[in-house]
């Protein structure tokens, strides 16, 4: 595959801005929860998906994982691993939100803020998560193509 177009300036900027946006989303999502694991545990429990003994562990670990993944994506380090985790987390969140919506559990999303002001809106939550998932997929695809493009360099010289 000819990957010269990937080296054009507009594509580079598009890739950079998509990656920074995705990283910022994860850092913002994790930040508030880092300091309030008890409240986050309550939100996870309200989803009624995880068994009780896993709720606190998820509430403690998930914010750090989100923040770490976000920081790595922002910094451009360990991108294959960070992007794979970001995409996986977004799929898990999408499934959790979809299950809650399907079961009629009208709960706070707990995605970015632990103290939302408005009423829960699952259409908005799901659309937003789907957008982030598309963004994650696009950044992953770009990284994959660039990575494979870099691998071909020795073969052509």
């Amino acid at each position: 595959m000819n990957s010269d177009w990937l080296k054009s300036r507009p594509v580079k900027y598009l890739f950079l801005s998509s990656r920074l946006l995705l990283g910022a989303v994860f850092v913002l999502a994790g930040a508030d929860k880092l300091f309030h694991p008890g409240e986050f545990a309550g939100i996870i429990s309200n989803y009624q998906i995880l068994p009780d003994h896993l709720v606190n562990i998820a509430a403690v670990v998930l914010p750090w994982l989100e923040t770490l993944v976000g920081l790595l994506i922002l910094a451009g380090w360990w991108l294959p691993g960070a992007l794979a985790l970001a995409d996986s987390l977004l799929i898990v969140f999408l499934v959790a939100l979809g299950l809650a919506a399907a079961r009629g559990i009208d709960i706070d999303c707990g995605c970015f803020s632990l103290n939302p002001t408005g009423a829960p809106n699952f259409v908005w939550y799901l659309s937003r998560d789907l957008f982030f998932l598309l963004l994650g997929g696009a950044v992953t695809a770009q990284t994959l193509i660039r990575s494979s493009g870099n691998q071909r360099v020795p073969e052509t010289t």
Binding site: L68, W78, P80, G81, A84, L144, S147
Partner: peptide
Amino acid sequence: KTACGKSFPREALKQGGLIVLIALAIS
């Protein structure tokens, strides 16, 4: 930085596992 010359899925798996371990340790 992203290593060149290594397969993406293998890198993703290795790095993803390390990131999860680091997040577990810190949290």
